[in-house]
Design a protein around this nucleic acid. Structure first.
Lengths: 337, 337
DNA sequence: CTGAAAGCGCTTACAG
DNA sequence: CTGAAAGCGCTTACAG
């Protein structure tokens, strides 16, 4: 550091006003005259002054910071964050910044004691939870957050009975669109790769949506193999599906990354996509668009999702008690179906 | 929010000691007796107390926070961060956390006035710069950082003449390994997709490494088409390459994501990979491993890169003046070559 | 090994 | 519209 940082007293001296006036001028306080504000801003620029976040945070009792907690999928091999969550990062960072908040990031294991951090130690005014998978395991912790009055918003399944405020895509509608589309294409023996129980509520909603669409035409899901959001897991699930001998003419994967693994196995086994099997994913990631053939997928509006998440959290911080939000999705049909 | 947060005075009262002793006990100060520390820790746990980051930061004049600045590639269409940088995020977050630092994130446009932030306003003790592409444009800003005494470490090209401390992969060695490998496979008419000028020093190093390997056998790069790190750009560059009529039997793409786009175009044009054209990428992303055929690529050790970046920055913060670091790379041969 | 005192750099009533 | 005063919750010399 070239000398010490300038403080508001240095600015005050240079501008010929008192120190509190510097604070008022720079925070946009209405009562400061334009003339005074101009002098202060000029002095601040000259000395390259910025308000000390820690002093200001201590006094105001707010941090102007949001925390983003990524929860890792419990992958056996490596520690991986679902690419879709990662793709939301940019939008969240931008949205937070546009609204005057800094963004603190942390990667968490579901097993860790994450509830006592961040807002408790006054690092953030509120918390966003992303990629939180296992509903049952985390339930007590979410309840504790609610009880402590912590401001938080969860990304994920937004169905009734969820704890706290949630922002998420309309997963049920997504699954339903996929079912309708496959039926349109003359495919009625649809298998599902993903989790279809309460441990992964988003995947479950997608499954139920598919099931509903098929049911309307008198069909049902012919098979469901468990897969978590990794290509490896998708590949293995697809292998179990093939080995089970169940007949199918389409596969709906609960995430693109699962579909990527499944498609790779299918082509290794000599199956043609979409002639022998239609494949559909969810998330519309880059990998999906670039696969061969390009993957039909359910699009979530990442930018809007990110903004909604941030805005909802800020509303909570301001005690506005916002509702949970369900964002519309869209089906993007490509070569794989 | 259930009442006000407890302070160190509350803990002191409960533990029957003075407030400074609470601070000492919790910060691990050696002079506190074990007996006293135990009482304090017990009281702190009982009241769910954590040290206020803002008060502590103000007093200590350090923030125990690192800032990570992502620079977006100037994509024409959408705002995208190179997937490779995103893949480093997890490792960086974990490494920072393991060393007792919080991590602040920001997405930046190269054009913005990013130097006056973060350390200036005392939000972070140091800054990591990732995905910084245009060397020439950013040079004056980096020089200003150095001049201001800001603690920062850059990820990227680590060749001589770079400003400040840099941590990066041995891109030259990577390009060289690719050249050798292609020659081994009997391919000598190698085209390059990426940038091969100073605006993208990492890409340039990869290009030069390839060129050196080919040169040792009396060959040279047959063509170089500009591409930035997006699939779209890779596709376009590959199209220009094909349309140029230049003969080639291999393509080295400066990033996997470029290769993904190029491979897609090649197969649309009916070219077989690797029979007609070998394709090699750089970064070893998931998309590369999952493409059809799987992409030969240069592997950067992401975890080690992330840890080295964080450790180097912490060393700088502690005024240890660390050297720039060049990390070894490895070639992962797969079906595409 | 522990306590009393000072002060980090701000913001916000309180006066005028 | 502006200034003098107090205080946010800690950490760190300074004593003892």
């Amino acid at each position: 550091m070239t000398g010490r940082r300038p403080t508001s007293f240095d600015i005050a001296a240079l501008a010929g006003v008192s120190q509190p006036t510097v604070s008022r001028a720079l925070s946009g306080n209405k009562s400061v005259s334009e003339e005074t504000r101009r002098k202060v801003v000029e002095a601040a620029e000259k000395l390259n002054y910025t308000v000390d976040k820690y002093a200001s945070g201590l006094r105001k009792r707010t941090s102007d910071t949001l925390a983003l907690l990524f929860f890792e999928d419990p992958t056996p091999d490596d520690t991986l964050i679902n690419p879709f969550y990662l793709s939301m990062l940019g939008g969240i960072a931008r949205a937070a910044s546009a609204r005057g908040y800094d963004l603190l990031i942390s990667i968490q294991q579901l097993s860790e004691d994450w509830h006592v951090d961040y807002e408790d130690s006054h690092k953030a005014d509120g918390i966003m939870l992303l990629g939180y998978g296992d509903y049952l395991e985390a339930r007590p912790r979410l309840e504790q957050l609610v009880q402590q009055g912590t401001h938080f918003v969860r990304w994920g399944a937004a169905e009734a009975g969820q704890i706290g405020t949630t922002v998420g895509s309309d997963n049920g509608q997504g699954g339903y669109l996929v079912g309708k589309h496959l039926l349109d294409r003359g495919r009625s023996k649809v298998a599902f790769l993903g989790l279809s129980d309460e441990t992964a509520p988003e995947f479950l909603e997608r499954y139920l949506g598919l099931s509903r669409a098929l049911g309307e035409e008198g069909h049902e899901v012919v098979a469901a193999e468990d897969a978590i959001a990794t290509a490896e897991s998708g590949r293995n699930a697809c292998e179990r599906l093939l080995d089970s001998g169940v007949e199918f003419d389409a596969i709906f994967c609960a995430a693109d990354i699962i579909a990527i693994g499944a498609m790779k196995l299918l082509s290794e086994r000599g199956l043609k996509i979409p002639d022998d099997v239609s494949v559909v994913g969810f998330d519309d990631t880059i990998a999906a668009r670039m696969s061969e053939p390009a993957l039909t997928s359910v699009v979530q509006d990442t930018r809007r999702a990110a903004e909604t998440l941030v805005d909802t959290l800020i509303a909570k911080i301001q005690d506005a008690a916002p509702e949970s939000v369900l964002l519309p999705v869209e089906l993007k049909v490509r070569g794989s179906s």
